[in-house]
Amino acid sequence: MSELWEILLMFVKAFGVGGLICAGAQLVINLTDLTSGKILVCFMLGGVALTALGLYQPLVDFAGAGATVPISGFGYLLANGAMRGAQKGLYEALTGSLAAASAGVSAAVVFSFLMSLIFRSHTKHS
């Protein structure tokens, strides 16, 4: 019973933290008119910086997917990979970030290419 309770609590934490990150991004959009590309870059860089300072890992431990699913989690992945690589040597320090993020980047490229084979863009009505 307590295990189920814990899982439920984890969902609540993921929802809260992930939602707060998104709401924060929306507030930035509202106040600054940044386009979506710039928002993604800013939050990704924020994730890198917080991870490098050791502040993002506790958030990941606390909220799980709530911290890894937003784009700042991508930054966390990159920085974490680089930091782990740095323990091995210079080569791993420089290549570690993309190696850690390779699953996400490969998936985005491959699936996007597949989708472009199947679909075409739709015109919009609203």
Binding site: I29, D33, T35, S36, S121, H122, T123, K124
Partner: peptide, 20 residues
Amino acid sequence: HFASAERQYRYPLELGTTRP
């Protein structure tokens, strides 16, 4: 044409952006 203008001046049609 909405779609051709959109892809030339703004973003791809399927990109999920908000409209100011």
